[in-house]
Protein backbone atom coordinates (compact mmCIF):
# COMPACT_ATOMS: atom_id res chain seq x y z
CA UNK A 1 0.00 0.00 0.00
CA UNK A 2 1.26 3.48 -0.86
CA UNK A 3 1.20 5.97 2.00
CA UNK A 4 -0.63 9.10 0.81
CA UNK A 5 1.60 11.53 2.68
CA UNK A 6 4.26 13.14 0.48
CA UNK A 7 7.55 13.61 2.34
CA UNK A 8 9.80 16.56 1.50
CA UNK A 9 12.85 14.30 1.54
CA UNK A 10 13.43 10.63 2.26
CA UNK A 11 17.02 9.66 2.99
CA UNK A 12 18.05 6.10 2.34
CA UNK A 13 20.52 5.11 5.07
CA UNK A 14 21.33 6.84 8.35
CA UNK A 15 25.12 6.91 8.28
CA UNK A 16 27.22 10.06 8.68
CA UNK A 17 26.27 11.41 5.22
CA UNK A 18 22.51 11.20 5.75
CA UNK A 19 22.60 12.29 9.39
CA UNK A 20 24.63 15.39 8.47
CA UNK A 21 22.23 16.11 5.60
CA UNK A 22 19.31 15.71 8.00
CA UNK A 23 20.77 18.29 10.40
CA UNK A 24 20.75 20.78 7.52
CA UNK A 25 17.36 19.91 6.00
CA UNK A 26 15.50 19.86 9.32
CA UNK A 27 17.01 23.20 10.35
CA UNK A 28 15.57 24.57 7.10
CA UNK A 29 12.14 23.19 8.09
CA UNK A 30 12.31 20.53 5.40
CA UNK A 31 10.40 17.52 6.66
CA UNK A 32 12.90 14.64 6.71
CA UNK A 33 12.50 10.87 7.04
CA UNK A 34 15.49 8.52 7.14
CA UNK A 35 15.35 4.76 6.55
CA UNK A 36 18.03 2.64 8.22
CA UNK A 37 18.25 -1.14 7.77
CA UNK A 38 21.28 -1.62 10.01
CA UNK A 39 23.00 0.58 12.56
CA UNK A 40 22.20 4.28 12.90
CA UNK A 41 25.60 5.88 12.31
CA UNK A 42 26.58 3.40 9.59
CA UNK A 43 30.15 2.20 9.36
CA UNK A 44 31.26 5.01 11.66
CA UNK A 45 29.29 3.34 14.48
CA UNK A 46 31.18 0.06 14.14
CA UNK A 47 34.60 1.73 14.02
CA UNK A 48 36.51 1.57 17.29
CA UNK A 49 38.24 4.96 17.28
CA UNK A 50 38.07 7.82 14.80
CA UNK A 51 41.23 9.95 14.93
CA UNK A 52 40.79 12.11 11.85
CA UNK A 53 37.36 13.68 12.23
CA UNK A 54 38.00 17.42 12.67
CA UNK A 55 37.13 18.94 16.03
CA UNK A 56 38.14 16.02 18.24
CA UNK A 57 41.83 16.50 19.09
CA UNK A 58 41.97 13.28 21.12
CA UNK A 59 39.92 11.26 18.64
CA UNK A 60 36.41 10.03 19.30
CA UNK A 61 34.92 6.55 19.60
CA UNK A 62 32.99 5.73 16.43
CA UNK A 63 29.94 4.72 18.44
CA UNK A 64 29.94 8.04 20.32
CA UNK A 65 30.34 10.06 17.12
CA UNK A 66 27.44 8.15 15.56
CA UNK A 67 25.27 8.73 18.62
CA UNK A 68 26.10 12.46 18.59
CA UNK A 69 25.21 12.74 14.89
CA UNK A 70 21.90 10.95 15.52
CA UNK A 71 21.02 13.21 18.48
CA UNK A 72 21.87 16.34 16.50
CA UNK A 73 19.67 15.27 13.57
CA UNK A 74 16.78 14.24 15.86
CA UNK A 75 17.08 17.47 17.85
CA UNK A 76 15.89 19.41 14.80
CA UNK A 77 13.12 16.97 13.96
CA UNK A 78 14.59 14.23 11.74
CA UNK A 79 12.63 10.97 11.99
CA UNK A 80 14.55 7.71 11.68
CA UNK A 81 12.58 4.65 10.68
CA UNK A 82 14.19 1.22 11.16
CA UNK A 83 13.63 -0.50 7.83
CA UNK A 84 14.98 -1.04 4.34
CA UNK A 85 14.36 0.70 1.02
CA UNK A 86 14.11 -1.86 -1.77
CA UNK A 87 13.52 0.29 -4.87
CA UNK A 88 13.15 3.89 -6.07
CA UNK A 89 10.96 4.86 -9.05
CA UNK A 90 9.47 7.99 -10.59
CA UNK A 91 5.76 8.54 -9.93
CA UNK A 92 4.75 11.56 -11.97
CA UNK A 93 6.67 14.52 -10.50
CA UNK A 94 7.20 12.59 -7.29
CA UNK A 95 9.39 9.67 -6.28
CA UNK A 96 8.06 6.37 -5.00
CA UNK A 97 10.17 4.35 -2.58
CA UNK A 98 9.40 0.70 -1.96
CA UNK A 99 10.26 -0.05 1.65
CA UNK A 100 9.76 -2.72 4.28
CA UNK A 101 7.15 -0.38 5.80
CA UNK A 102 5.22 -0.12 2.50
CA UNK A 103 5.48 2.30 -0.41
CA UNK A 104 6.29 5.94 0.36
CA UNK A 105 6.16 9.12 -1.71
CA UNK A 106 8.69 11.93 -1.61
CA UNK A 107 9.52 15.12 -3.46
CA UNK A 108 13.24 14.40 -3.17
CA UNK A 109 15.43 11.46 -2.18
CA UNK A 110 18.97 11.28 -0.84
CA UNK A 111 20.77 7.99 -1.44
CA UNK A 112 23.38 7.62 1.33
CA UNK A 113 23.62 3.85 1.65
CA UNK A 114 27.41 3.59 1.93
CA UNK A 115 29.03 0.22 1.49
CA UNK A 116 29.45 -3.17 3.14
CA UNK A 117 32.35 -5.54 3.68
CA UNK A 118 33.47 -7.70 0.78
CA UNK A 119 33.98 -11.41 1.21
CA UNK A 120 37.15 -13.17 0.02
CA UNK A 121 35.27 -16.10 -1.48
CA UNK A 122 37.44 -18.96 -0.22
CA UNK A 123 36.36 -22.38 1.08
CA UNK A 124 35.36 -22.26 4.74
CA UNK A 125 34.42 -18.55 4.70
CA UNK A 126 30.68 -19.10 4.40
CA UNK A 127 30.65 -22.29 6.49
CA UNK A 128 32.30 -20.66 9.52
CA UNK A 129 30.57 -17.28 9.20
CA UNK A 130 30.06 -15.85 12.74
CA UNK A 131 31.57 -19.05 14.17
CA UNK A 132 35.19 -18.23 13.39
CA UNK A 133 34.96 -15.94 10.36
CA UNK A 134 34.07 -12.31 11.07
CA UNK A 135 33.84 -8.90 9.40
CA UNK A 136 33.37 -6.64 12.44
CA UNK A 137 36.09 -6.44 15.08
CA UNK A 138 34.18 -4.20 17.48
CA UNK A 139 31.28 -6.68 17.38
CA UNK A 140 33.01 -10.03 17.66
CA UNK A 141 36.56 -9.36 18.89
CA UNK A 142 35.66 -10.08 22.53
CA UNK A 143 35.22 -13.77 21.71
CA UNK A 144 38.96 -14.04 21.03
CA UNK A 145 40.39 -13.17 24.42
CA UNK A 146 43.73 -14.99 24.73
CA UNK A 147 43.22 -16.61 21.32
CA UNK A 148 45.21 -16.57 18.08
CA UNK A 149 43.82 -14.75 15.07
CA UNK A 150 44.38 -14.25 11.36
CA UNK A 151 43.38 -10.92 9.80
CA UNK A 152 43.10 -10.76 6.00
CA UNK A 153 43.69 -7.43 4.22
CA UNK A 154 46.24 -4.66 3.88
CA UNK A 155 44.29 -1.39 3.78
CA UNK A 156 43.35 1.08 6.51
CA UNK A 157 40.50 -1.05 7.87
CA UNK A 158 42.59 -4.23 8.12
CA UNK A 159 45.38 -2.48 9.99
CA UNK A 160 43.09 -0.40 12.21
CA UNK A 161 41.02 -3.45 13.16
CA UNK A 162 44.13 -5.59 13.76
CA UNK A 163 45.33 -2.95 16.21
CA UNK A 164 41.95 -3.06 17.95
CA UNK A 165 42.02 -6.87 18.11
CA UNK A 166 45.39 -6.87 19.93
CA UNK A 167 43.45 -5.93 23.06
CA UNK A 168 41.99 -9.45 23.02
CA UNK A 169 44.20 -11.79 20.95
CA UNK A 170 47.56 -13.19 22.00
CA UNK A 171 48.86 -13.01 18.45
CA UNK A 172 47.66 -11.91 15.01
CA UNK A 173 48.96 -13.02 11.60
CA UNK A 174 48.10 -10.27 9.10
CA UNK A 175 47.86 -11.75 5.59
CA UNK A 176 48.36 -9.11 2.89
CA UNK A 177 47.82 -10.21 -0.73
CA UNK A 178 50.28 -7.63 -2.12
CA UNK A 179 51.67 -4.64 -0.19
CA UNK A 180 50.35 -2.67 2.78
CA UNK A 181 48.13 0.21 1.62
CA UNK A 182 47.31 1.62 5.06
CA UNK A 183 48.16 5.22 5.95
CA UNK A 184 51.60 6.02 7.35
CA UNK A 185 50.17 6.80 10.78
CA UNK A 186 48.51 3.38 10.95
CA UNK A 187 51.63 1.63 9.64
CA UNK A 188 53.62 3.36 12.36
CA UNK A 189 51.23 2.01 15.03
CA UNK A 190 51.33 -1.39 13.36
CA UNK A 191 55.13 -1.45 13.57
CA UNK A 192 54.91 -0.94 17.33
CA UNK A 193 52.73 -4.08 17.60
CA UNK A 194 55.08 -5.98 15.29
CA UNK A 195 58.01 -4.99 17.52
CA UNK A 196 56.04 -6.12 20.58
CA UNK A 197 55.54 -9.54 18.96
CA UNK A 198 51.73 -9.15 18.90
CA UNK A 199 51.31 -8.95 15.10
CA UNK A 200 53.24 -10.65 12.29
CA UNK A 201 52.75 -9.16 8.82
CA UNK A 202 52.90 -11.55 5.85
CA UNK A 203 53.17 -9.53 2.63
CA UNK A 204 52.53 -11.09 -0.80
CA UNK A 205 50.47 -13.82 0.84
CA UNK A 206 47.24 -15.08 -0.68
CA UNK A 207 44.48 -16.54 1.49
CA UNK A 208 43.23 -19.84 0.06
CA UNK A 209 41.16 -21.66 2.66
CA UNK A 210 39.77 -21.43 6.17
CA UNK A 211 39.96 -24.84 7.77
CA UNK A 212 37.94 -26.06 10.74
CA UNK A 213 37.69 -29.12 12.92
CA UNK A 214 34.86 -30.11 15.29
CA UNK A 215 32.84 -27.07 14.24
CA UNK A 216 35.49 -24.41 14.87
CA UNK A 217 38.26 -22.76 12.91
CA UNK A 218 41.75 -24.20 13.47
CA UNK A 219 43.87 -22.74 10.69
CA UNK A 220 44.10 -20.64 7.53
CA UNK A 221 45.93 -21.96 4.49
CA UNK A 222 47.72 -19.35 2.40
CA UNK A 223 50.26 -19.17 -0.40
CA UNK A 224 53.48 -17.21 -0.50
CA UNK A 225 53.13 -15.47 -3.88
CA UNK A 226 56.88 -15.34 -4.52
CA UNK A 227 57.73 -19.02 -3.92
CA UNK A 228 54.28 -20.50 -4.57
CA UNK A 229 54.67 -22.41 -1.28
CA UNK A 230 51.62 -23.22 0.85
CA UNK A 231 51.75 -21.84 4.40
CA UNK A 232 49.52 -22.78 7.33
CA UNK A 233 48.58 -20.24 9.97
CA UNK A 234 47.08 -21.75 13.13
CA UNK A 235 44.08 -19.63 14.13
CA UNK A 236 41.01 -19.72 16.38
CA UNK A 237 39.34 -17.10 14.24
CA UNK A 238 39.67 -15.01 11.08
CA UNK A 239 38.71 -11.37 10.53
CA UNK A 240 38.34 -10.28 6.91
CA UNK A 241 38.84 -6.65 5.75
CA UNK A 242 39.46 -6.79 2.02
CA UNK A 243 37.55 -3.74 0.93
CA UNK A 244 33.99 -2.66 0.51
CA UNK A 245 31.21 -3.10 -2.02
CA UNK A 246 28.62 -0.37 -2.61
CA UNK A 247 25.13 -0.87 -1.15
CA UNK A 248 23.33 -0.33 -4.45
CA UNK A 249 21.76 -3.74 -5.14
CA UNK A 250 18.40 -2.19 -4.25
CA UNK A 251 18.77 0.12 -7.28
CA UNK A 252 19.18 -2.67 -9.83
CA UNK A 253 15.57 -2.31 -11.05
CA UNK A 254 15.63 1.49 -10.91
CA UNK A 255 16.68 3.91 -13.64
CA UNK A 256 19.43 5.40 -11.46
CA UNK A 257 22.75 5.32 -13.23
CA UNK A 258 25.68 3.53 -11.56
CA UNK A 259 29.36 3.46 -12.53
CA UNK A 260 31.27 0.30 -13.46
CA UNK A 261 31.81 -0.70 -9.82
CA UNK A 262 28.23 -0.02 -8.80
CA UNK A 263 28.60 3.43 -7.21
CA UNK A 264 25.89 6.05 -7.87
CA UNK A 265 26.85 8.60 -10.53
CA UNK A 266 26.05 12.25 -9.79
CA UNK A 267 26.76 15.67 -11.27
CA UNK A 268 28.60 18.35 -9.31
CA UNK A 269 25.35 19.23 -7.49
CA UNK A 270 25.33 15.62 -6.20
CA UNK A 271 22.17 14.97 -8.23
CA UNK A 272 21.76 11.66 -10.05
CA UNK A 273 20.41 11.23 -13.58
CA UNK A 274 16.91 11.17 -12.03
CA UNK A 275 15.70 14.67 -11.16
CA UNK A 276 15.18 15.09 -7.43
CA UNK A 277 17.31 12.08 -6.47
CA UNK A 278 20.63 13.01 -4.87
CA UNK A 279 23.50 10.89 -3.53
CA UNK A 280 26.17 11.54 -0.88
CA UNK A 281 28.90 9.74 1.01
CA UNK A 282 30.64 6.43 0.33
CA UNK A 283 27.97 5.25 -2.12
CA UNK A 284 28.64 8.14 -4.51
CA UNK A 285 30.99 7.65 -7.43
CA UNK A 286 34.03 9.86 -6.78
CA UNK A 287 33.61 10.10 -3.00
CA UNK A 288 36.76 9.87 -0.88
CA UNK A 289 35.27 7.41 1.64
CA UNK A 290 35.90 9.30 4.87
CA UNK A 291 33.51 10.37 7.61
CA UNK A 292 34.48 14.04 7.22
CA UNK A 293 33.83 13.97 3.48
CA UNK A 294 30.60 11.99 3.92
CA UNK A 295 29.24 14.62 6.32
CA UNK A 296 30.48 17.37 3.98
CA UNK A 297 28.71 15.79 1.02
CA UNK A 298 25.61 15.33 3.18
CA UNK A 299 25.58 19.05 3.95
CA UNK A 300 26.08 19.93 0.27
CA UNK A 301 23.31 17.58 -0.83
CA UNK A 302 20.96 19.09 1.77
CA UNK A 303 21.55 22.59 0.41
CA UNK A 304 20.94 21.36 -3.15
CA UNK A 305 17.75 19.64 -1.98
CA UNK A 306 16.61 22.92 -0.44
CA UNK A 307 17.21 24.72 -3.75
CA UNK A 308 15.35 21.98 -5.59
CA UNK A 309 12.39 22.20 -3.24
CA UNK A 310 12.31 25.95 -3.55
CA UNK A 311 11.41 25.33 -7.15
CA UNK A 312 14.63 26.27 -8.90
CA UNK A 313 14.95 22.93 -10.59
CA UNK A 314 11.48 21.48 -10.71
CA UNK A 315 11.40 20.89 -14.45
CA UNK A 316 11.58 17.09 -14.41
Amino acid sequence: MTETKVHDVIMVGAGPAALAAAVYTTREDIETLLFERGVVGGLAAVTDMVDNYPGFPDGIEGLTLAENLRKQAERFGAVIELGEVTNIAKEGKLLKLETTSGDMLAKTVLIATGSDYKKIGVPGEQEYYARGVHYCATCDGAFYRDKRLVVVGGGNSAVQESLFLTRYATHIDLLVRSELRASEVLQHDLQKMVDAGKITVHLQTATNEIVGEDNHVVKVVGTDNASGKKIEFPADGVFVFVGLKPNTEFLKNSAIELDEIGLVKTNEDLETNITGVFAAGDVRSGSTMQIATATGEGATAALRIREYLEGHKQTS
Binding site: G38, V39, V40, G41, A45, V46, D48, E61, G62, L63, A66, E67, L82, T138, C139, G141, A142
Partner: peptide
Protein backbone atom coordinates in the same frame (compact mmCIF):
# COMPACT_ATOMS: atom_id res chain seq x y z
CA UNK B 1 26.67 -7.36 24.52
CA UNK B 2 30.15 -5.85 24.59
CA UNK B 3 31.29 -2.27 25.19
CA UNK B 4 32.03 -1.58 21.51
CA UNK B 5 29.07 -3.30 19.84
CA UNK B 6 27.01 -0.88 17.74
CA UNK B 7 24.42 -3.49 16.73
CA UNK B 8 23.78 -4.14 20.46
CA UNK B 9 22.84 -0.48 20.83
CA UNK B 10 20.33 -0.96 18.00
CA UNK B 11 18.69 -3.95 19.72
CA UNK B 12 18.42 -1.93 22.94
CA UNK B 13 16.99 1.02 21.00
CA UNK B 14 14.39 -1.23 19.36
Amino acid sequence: TTNTCAYCAMVKKY
